[in-house]
């Protein structure tokens, strides 16, 4: 079977053309995505003075690892930040993914009468948000979550988008499967856990990836709720502080008393970006295998 398809493909001119276009287009776009990153990398390895004189460059003109030296001066900070972000990401993604999947399954069941009401209840929150003041007061004064990692973990568990997305993914599994399992006397939760979950790996991988990326990129809640008195704070907040406070120190005319510090500002920003972003390249291939698995599950099923 496989070989006959392969043979068939080889003969088909249009398909070959589509593939050719695909390679070219995706290759080019990938390069386009990579270029600025190379610029970041190049700049991070350039001496500060050269940046001031000549601007950014793809190839470091005046090679220097000074910025990295400063970034790693306090390796604890980076390692600690990584650990915090990783822990929050893993726990948050696991819990969030499970809840989202469960809800998504329930909400797409045509025989679930409250599904529209609940869907609306969830969707409505994307339109109307209370704003930062009440959210801040509720999180810090009511629940006392200031300087507590939960203040970052909880808000990132799910978004209405992910729940609705999950719902539409699961809908592609025929309802007949649920119905026949029900005939056999299986409960709703068991059907979800043992039948549906294994069939939705691509969906789970997608949603999980989104939740994880959300946590990985999170800095706003961390900025609001985690004060500098926390020794270790999420990675992106660390990066954000490096990048923006340097700007502030330079441009501010309000606070008159900021000491000039000997920092390679530009290259340090870029070096921090590289350190915080680089490992993400490993992130995606990890998830990718689940996408491929999804295909085989589908094939076996038929």
């Amino acid at each position: 079977m496989e070989t006959s398809i392969a043979r068939f493909r080889g003969k088909d001119g249009t398909s070959a053309l589509v593939r050719g276009v695909g390679y070219a287009l995706i290759g080019l776009f990938a390069l386009f995505c990579l270029l600025p990153f190379i610029l970041v990398l190049g700049t991070s390895l350039t001496a500060e003075k050269t940046i001031t004189l000549h601007g950014y460059n793809i190839w470091p003109r005046d090679f220097s690892t000074f910025a990295y030296k400063i970034v790693f001066e306090n390796p604890d900070m980076i390692v600690g930040s990584y650990a915090v972000t990783l822990c929050i990401t893993i726990v948050g993604t696991a819990v969030g993914l499970f809840v989202v999947a469960m809800t998504g399954y329930a909400l797409q069941r045509p025989d679930f009468r409250s599904r529209n009401a609940i869907s609306f209840l969830i969707y409505f929150t994307t339109l109307f948000q209370g704003g930062v003041v009440p959210f801040y007061i509720i999180m810090t004064q009511w629940f006392g979550l200031k300087d507590n990692y939960l203040s970052v973990l909880l808000p990132g568990l799910m978004t209405p988008f992910l729940v609705i997305m999950m719902k539409s993914f699961v809908r592609s599994i025929p309802h007949a499967i649920t119905e026949s399992a029900k005939m056999d006397g299986a409960g709703d939760f068991r059907i979800f856990l043992q039948l549906i979950l294994p069939m939705t790996t691509p969906a789970l991988a997608t949603i999980g990836l989104f939740i994880a990326i959300g946590y990985w990129n999170e800095w706003y809640n961390a900025m609001l709720f985690l004060s500098p008195n926390m020794t270790y704070r999420p990675l992106q907040l660390f990066l954000y502080n490096v990048v923006t406070s340097a700007d502030f120190v330079r441009n501010s005319s309000v606070a008159s008393n900021i000491q000039p510090r000997d920092m390679p500002l530009e290259s340090m920003k870029m070096a921090t970006a590289v350190v915080a972003t680089g490992p993400v390249i490993l992130f995606y291939p990890l998830v990718q295998r689940f996408f491929i698995k999804g295909i085989t599950v589908g094939a076996v099923k038929g």
């Binding site: 930062v132 900025m223 609001l224 004060s227 500098p228 008195n229 954000y240 502080n241 923006t244 406070s245 502030f248 120190v249």
Partner: peptide
């Protein structure tokens, strides 16, 4: 209680 420069007004 430090208020860091990043987005300090908020």
């Amino acid at each position: 209680k430090w208020v860091e420069w990043a987005d300090w007004q908020t």
